[in-house]
Each structure stands twice: as structure tokens, then as C-alpha cells.
Design a protein around this nucleic acid. Structure first.
Lengths: 189, 189
DNA sequence: CACTTTAACTTGCCAGCGACTAGTTACTCT
DNA sequence: AGAGTAACTAGTCGCTGGCAAGTTAAAGTG
């Protein structure tokens, strides 16, 4: 696909999103340049605007894709293991394997956070997250459920963010998911 | 101070850092413009370069200031309360009250993470963080200490990040520290 | 099939930005 | 008082994002 060098790229939208994810993973969202993406895709500098409007539009699309991928990953994890602990590990692994998406998703100043598509995707991910807590062997009392959700979300999100930021001083190995497991477990003992 | 409109600003470096923090808190680090800062401070567009070299240099200085402020806050909290829980609340409160610093500190692609000043400040903050764990009533066994530190850091960092990102769907009030306390407590029960 | 509409691009332009160079001002130190 | 240096200014460059106007090709319509 996209082999032909015709006037129409054929799959430019996806090509730009992929190139953006790659560029952001390398140099961070701040260094992203639409013109550079256009160059990588072999199109003119104004082509991206046609698909995304402006830079924020492109990052909005990236955020949507990210929230949907996260929801998919969490749903799959729950279907396979039914374990909240493993759902947390999945969250961390998602962040590392989709670094660019993850960084954009949680930096709303970069995109249009009120976009309806983002809202839908974010709620999907939120629901997938909440569903995980109900898989606990000893589910907390109803009034505690909310706090447990927040605690679980916070610990995995914090671990992922700190890992990506390179904030942990000593080396914890090269597998973020495995490194996270014993840490997350402290919350559920 | 800085009342005189002379050739020399007198306190430009600090004025620029303060203006940068304000601008970032409003619009995020990506939207930051050195020229805009210069305008706010009433100096020429090239003045910031003299104090910070380039944009990354300014953000490096902001990160240093942030890590030092965080270390100060954590040390003060430990001196006052001697409680790890309250140290966590302090961490969250720091993030909200120093939003711009916090966002920059943990986004190393924005600045020079290998700068020696950053390294010193970061280690100060890390030490202040570790010291908190030793204040636990039931300190964990030596081999567990590390995991407890990581878990504590992760949960407060995650809560702060998610709060700043506006990721929590339902309103948790306007006081992040108070909202965080019951969540953090789940880790230490 | 011809004809029209529309989607997917390109080309050209503008202001703003970061970074660099060279010059100017004023403080400091002896 | 005079020299040296720190703190700025002014001017320029290439790059960027965003806009306007034109071009190409594909899809729909009789």
C-alpha cells in the first residue's frame, strides 16, 4: 500500500500519525514539526493541514488513537487474566510501548481536550480501567471503590510517567512491566 | 526592585524565570516563547539568551529551581509532621502550586537532563523522598524498602500528574492535597 | 460516456520564533 | 580615572505554523 507515487498519497492520514508518533518518541512533542512530517511522508508542507486542520488537530487525533489503544489493551488484559494487578502491568507496558501517544494523551495543553472524539475514547479507557477494580478477589465496599480506583490508576500512571521520564535513579532493568509488578502489588496486599 | 528603567534590568534572570513559570502554567511548555518573555520583562528579544544560552537552558534553570523547591517542601513537611502520608500530600500540593516547574521537571526532553546543577537538585529531592519512608511506624524490611519507596513515589506522582492533566472524570474538589490523602492512605493500610 | 462536484493535494506567502553575530551601555574593580 | 567585563540591544538567518489560491485526480451523476 502507498507504493504508488501518484498525486494522491492514498493513506496520508495514517502515515502522518505514524510519523508523528515516531518523531515524538524520539524528541518529545515540543520538537514536533508538521513540515518535517510532511517531508518524511514525501508530500508538500501544507498537506497535513488538509487532514488535521492544524498541529493541535493532529495531536488530537493521536490522543484519540492512544485512548482507544489503551482501552483495547486493558480490555484484552482483563479478558485474559482477570487480574487487576496484570491490568496495571498492562497499563505500564502500554505507556512504554506507545510512548508518544501516552505523552500526548496526558498533556491536554497540546490538543483539543474538548473534542467529542477524544471524550468518547477517554471514557472508553476510563471504563476499562474501572472494570479492572471489580475483578479484585476482595472487592472493596462500595464507598471505597472510588478511592481504590484512584489509587490503582495513580500508582500505575505514576510509575509509567516516572519510568518514561527516566526519573528512577537506579536501573530497574529494561522491562517496565516486570519492574512495575512488585511495586503495584504493594497496593493490593 | 526593578523599578528603574535603566539599561540594566537588575533582576532579569529571576524575572524571566517567574514569567516563564506563569506562561507555562497558562499555556503549557510547548507554547513558551523566549521573545514573549522578553517582551513581558520589557527587554530586547535577545536578552534571555545572555542569561540562559537558549530555550533549553532556561527550562534547565526552571527544573533546578523546581527540584530544589520540592526538596525544601518535603524536608519541611518531614520536620513538621514526620508522616509519610503527609509527605505525599505535600508532594501533590507542590505539583499543583508549582505546576510549571513540575511539568518541566518530569519532561526531560525539554531541557538538559545531564546538567550537573539539575543532577544535584534532583538528588536532593530524591533523598528527601527516601527519607520519608523511614518515618513509617512499621518500616518495611530492608529488602522491601526500595519497593515501598517506588510505590509511594508512584502513587503521589501519578495522582498529581492525573490531577494536573484534568484526567479525573468527576470533580474531586478544589484542593488536590486533601483529595489525595484518602487515596494515598490506601497504600499504607 | 461526458460532465460536474468534491476530496486530496501543491505552491506561494506572511508573521513569529530561536539562534547567532556584532555592537552598545553601564557597572565593578583597582 | 581607566580598564575590563557583565548586561544588555540591534540586525539577520533559516525554520515553522497557518492561510489563500490554484491544481490534480477520483467519485458521483445524467
Amino acid at each position: 500500500m502507498a507504493e504508488k507515487r501518484s498525486y494522491h498519497h492514498g493513506d496520508l492520514r495514517r502515515a502522518l500519525l505514524a510519523a508523528a508518533a515516531e518523531a515524538i518518541a524520539e524528541s518529545g512533542p515540543a520538537a514536533l514539526s508538521l513540515r518535517d512530517l510532511a517531508r518524511r511522508a514525501g508530500v508538500s508542507h501544507a498537506a497535513p493541514a488538509h487532514h488535521f486542520g492544524d498541529k493541535a488537530g493532529l495531536l488530537t487525533a493521536l490522543a484519540v488513537e492512544g485512548f482507544n489503544r489503551l482501552a483495547d489493551a486493558l480490555d484484552a488484559s482483563r479478558a485474559e487474566t482477570g487480574s487487576l494487578l496484570e491490568a496495571g502491568v498492562t497499563y505500564v507496558r502500554f505507556a512504554v510501548e506507545n510512548r508518544a501517544h501516552f505523552e500526548v494523551m496526558f498533556q491536554p495543553s497540546l490538543y483539543d481536550r474538548d473534542d467529542p472524539e477524544v471524550d468518547v475514547a477517554r471514557q472508553r479507557a476510563g471504563a476499562a480501567l474501572s472494570a479492572g477494580v471489580s475483578t479484585l478477589d476482595e472487592p472493596p465496599p462500595a464507598e471505597e471503590t472510588r478511592k481504590t480506583e484512584l489509587a490503582a490508576w495513580s500508582i500505575v500512571h505514576g510509575f509509567a510517567t516516572l519510568w518514561l521520564a527516566g526519573a528512577f535513579p537506579d536501573p530497574l532493568g529494561d522491562n517496565a512491566g516486570d519492574a512495575a509488578r512488585p511495586v503495584i502489588r504493594r497496593l493490593f496486599d
